[in-house]
Design a protein around this nucleic acid. Structure first.
Lengths: 346, 346
DNA sequence: CTGTTAGCGCCTTCAG
DNA sequence: CTGAAGGCGCTAACAG
């Protein structure tokens, strides 16, 4: 079974009575080794519990078999779930993921440094700000880049966009069918481009459905519970509050639901709420949240695809990929209470 | 600024007109370099954006500056939060964390292999099953180990126990004060030792408070929402259901709350619920969950402490550390509805 | 088919 | 104070 201390290849070679090269060949599955020799080597390897040192290989090849994954906030369960999905994909190709959470305070610069240290073979930047200066070192070193929802490509950098437009249209249609006319929106923070993308998708969906877009029913959140709560309170205090809102993500929606509750109101009777993400907790809360699902697996797959494309076309402009979203109707949306009354003017 | 392709030390040395050794000395802060030479080198280093390749250093030293962190389930937000806390600690000492989720299906063996590959300097096993055979290779290679809630130590392996006893006593006291007498429990899966620890802590707390321990009001969950829901339904169908329950973790508690809701009942009117963990979502759900908080930072700190102890006493039996818990009272617990009626026999 | 050799980038003696 | 040289473990040429 096991052994004491780290065993190296030379030691394995010695025990098997062959040279390191032969051991290396056996391990890499080369067919240029006689079967009985190979078997002998394999026996020694497994008997010693030998595991090759990847640092050595990396030193030789300059490839680390790991991809950096820059996320805005690992506290948000969505990103945790996404990391898991991405990791599963990488395991199949024997790679690793280096997840890096770029909190508000630290700069992207530091995470870039960390990736450079770990010699990542590529980096995926999810919904984060794209500070050209900060990622410069990556580009200069020819490290393939993939952004999510930046909706811009450049040499050595592809983009995967999440099709919010699709989900928002479905959501607005859903609300319209229920009878909502005054639909509000609680967005994300100012920095990341995805905030604008989501806000625009909302406005377009509203107009596309033939409804009125009320700028006064729009608020900025922070992608967290706190932001959703504060925004919904502000929204409900207006003279003509919305009967339904869509939020930039589920955490914001959960915050909004909390705010409504604290106001002594109830969801969906007093306000219908639609989130974005579909956290696995969203179907567990009361009421279960109607939300626009971002499919993690498809997103992860698209990122990997984009990565491969970029890698193979490093000299060229990156490609654009897209991932669909899907409305999941649960119980946080219902017919507006006020609407019928207003209509039936008796 | 940046440069093209990976730059190595020799190149820096060349540009600065010195040798690699001098560059190395400057980078490691050796004082044996003339200040003007050092400055010259530092300028070239920062101008080239040079970052030393840790693989080379690792190859030399055999230390990877990373710790493995084996968790039962990264889907559970508690572990995500814990990884973050542990990582923060490691950043300060310039180390990294390799988080590994050991799902039900895969075996611990595989994760051990992954850690061996990455040449971790140590491993923390959180609330997982401790298969002696599987971790043997770690022990044999003299890799310091820390377990959480295994409550056993051995050569080269320390333990950090979470003081559930404390939290459960507080929780039972809280429920007793509210007037509860029939308190049930929904536990964890059979494998990990922590399940027994939590179950025993519950039973002792009940008896310690002078209440009756009803084995019939005990169920097994799976640390997930589904388990909590199924268990609570089963519990409420008994002829004499509990008026309050304590669950093995917050996810289970959330599941229980969901189950109660589906049964057409309401928390805490029909059943008071106490969780364990204090997920950041637990204060956001309706009703906010009363729960026994496991402080992540303190747990992470204790793990690191334990790791350092083990490392410095590899030949000796590990030490035992403990982390306290704390009851957080919110709104999922209240006076039982039935109790007063039963008492006032009129 | 198998062994020998050189070198990946860094650090650390040992000389100068 | 600074330079030259060797070696960490592995692999890919190149010999045999």
């Amino acid at each position: 079974m096991g052994i004491l201390g780290p065993v190296n290849m030379r030691e394995i070679a010695r025990r098997a009575g062959v040279s390191c090269a032969t051991v290396s060949r056996v391990l890499s599955g080369s067919s240029l080794v006689r079967e009985d020799t190979a078997k002998k080597v394999r026996d020694v390897v497994s008997e010693a519990g030998f595991i090759p040192n990847p640092s050595a290989a990396m030193l030789k090849y300059g490839r680390s078999r790991t991809y950096g994954l820059v996320l805005p906030d690992l506290q948000n369960p969505f990103f945790g779930e996404f990391v898991g999905a991405f990791e599963d994909l990488l395991i199949d190709i024997d790679h690793e993921v280096l997840p890096i959470s770029v909190q508000t305070s630290d700069k992207l610069v530091k995470s870039v440094r960390r990736m450079l240290m770990r010699q990542v073979d590529g980096a995926v930047l999810v919904s984060s700000e794209f500070d050209t200066g900060a990622v410069e070192p990556l580009l200069l070193r020819q490290i393939p880049l993939v952004t999510v929802d930046r909706r811009t490509v450049q040499i050595g950098c592809s983009d995967v966009s999440i099709d919010y437009e699709l989900g928002f249209v479905e959501a607005v249609q859903h609300l319209k069918t229920l009878g909502h006319k005054r639909i509000g929106y609680i967005g994300g923070t100012k920095g990341p481009h995805t905030s604008e993308v989501r806000a625009n998708a909302f406005e377009q969906a509203i107009r596309g459905a033939g409804l009125t877009f009320y700028p006064g029913l729009t608020r900025r959140g922070n992608y967290q519970v706190t932001g959703g709560e504060a925004a919904v309170v502000s929204l409900m205090k207006t003279s003509a509050p919305p009967t339904a809102i869509i939020t930039a993500n589920d955490l914001t929606a959960l915050g909004a639901a909390l705010g409504i509750h604290r106001l002594g109101l109830v969801v969906p009777r007093d306000l219908s709420i639609v989130g974005v993400d579909d956290l696995f907790l969203s179907e567990v809360v009361q009421p279960p949240l109607t939300t626009i699902r971002i499919p993690r697996k498809r997103l992860a797959t698209a990122c990997l695809q984009a990565m491969n494309y970029t890698k193979q076309n490093l000299e060229r402009i990156g490609a654009e990929f897209s991932v669909p979203t899907q409305l999941i109707v649960r119980e946080s949306t219902a017919r507006p209470k006020s609407a019928p009354k207003k209509k039936s003017k008796r």
